[in-house]
């Protein structure tokens, strides 16, 4: 047997015939299996794909004829506003659930089992992030598709569709970190049982179910500091495009809200994740 520097038998074994996997073990097979697993979960499918669509159809049907306009010269209609709201809700639910699935996997001993494989902890978190991205895109696409096909959402500019979609998906990824953080923190087997109602509450604070919020009211003042508020405002902003090409004023406070919460969630998830891998 030829012996090169890389194939020197260690402990009697030629380790070159047993390579460690590339990318820390991340691969297409496990991604597809994870995706099948998510779509098999009735709770996830109902809350991330079906519920936002049903809510959209219900709320948009309550708009009286002649009141579909968002304002003088504004291109998008109220239906488009509701569509973006529901897509934000669905996408945030989806990414949080993807992150929070670590709680189930820890309780089941699956995380421990994975430590007996070459899958690196970083690759595992990356896998969760990729799953969050995929389900976030799915949730957004489904709501957008239904809204477009039923002609209830009206946005004449294709760029605005794209802007809204990208903001929702990107912003919702922040909540994958929230899900991870809570999934590691909560002792429950299924953290989503707690997180579902919490997200619904945060969505109300974030103005997702109530329409544009006035920052003059006490409710509005409190809401500005809640996690979904920033994302909700940024995601709706492209819809204010007018026939003359102008927008409503963009507030940096929205971005600050999203970034601060992103920092909190990522720091929290990293802290719990490190603690978890150290303890094992």
């Amino acid at each position: 047997m030829s012996t090169t520097a890389s194939s020197v038998p260690v402990g009697g074994f030629d380790l070159s015939t047993r390579p460690a996997p590339r990318f820390g073990g991340l691969n297409r097979t496990i991604l597809f299996i994870e995706l099948r697993r998510v779509l098999r979960n009735k709770r996830t499918v109902i809350f991330t794909l079906i519920f936002p669509v049903v809510m959209f159809l219900f709320i948009s049907s309550t708009i009286p004829a002649g009141e579909e306009s968002m304002g003088t010269n504004v291109l998008a209609n109220v239906g488009a506003y509701i569509m973006v709201s529901m897509a934000v809700y669905g996408a945030v639910m989806a990414t949080t659930a993807a992150g929070a699935s670590v709680s189930i996997e820890r309780a089941a001993g699956w995380s421990r089992q994975l430590r007996l494989t070459p899958l690196s902890p970083t690759a595992y978190i990356l896998l969760k992030a990729l799953m969050a991205l995929i389900v976030g895109v799915l949730a957004t696409l489904v709501t957008f598709a239904v809204a477009a096909l039923t002609h209830k959402a009206h946005i004449p500019d294709a760029t605005v569709w794209l802007q809204c979609g990208l903001i929702i998906i990107g912003g919702a990824l922040v909540f994958a970190a929230f899900g991870l953080f809570m999934g590691y923190l909560l002792p429950a087997e299924n953290a989503m049982q707690f997180l579902g109602p919490i997200l619904a509450l945060l969505s109300i604070f974030g103005g997702i179910f109530t329409g544009p919020l006035s920052t003059d009211s006490t409710f509005g003042k409190i809401a500005q500091f809640t996690p979904i508020y920033g994302l909700g405002q940024i995601a709706h902003w492209p819809l204010t495009l007018t026939t003359s090409g102008g927008h409503d004023a963009f507030k940096m406070a929205w971005v600050v809200n999203l970034l601060v919460w992103a920092l909190v969630f990522v720091a929290g998830a990293t802290w719990r994740f490190r603690k978890d891998t150290a303890r094992v």
Partner: peptide, 29 residues
């Protein structure tokens, strides 16, 4: 080295085949 634990270490919502395919996919050989 591989280990068979007494309890846990399984995902209820995967099929038996998916569980083995998942594990296999993590080992190049």
């Amino acid at each position: 080295v591989a280990a068979v634990m007494q309890t846990g270490g399984l995902l209820k919502d995967l099929t038996a085949r998916e569980t083995i395919e998942y594990t296999a996919a993590l080992f190049p050989a």
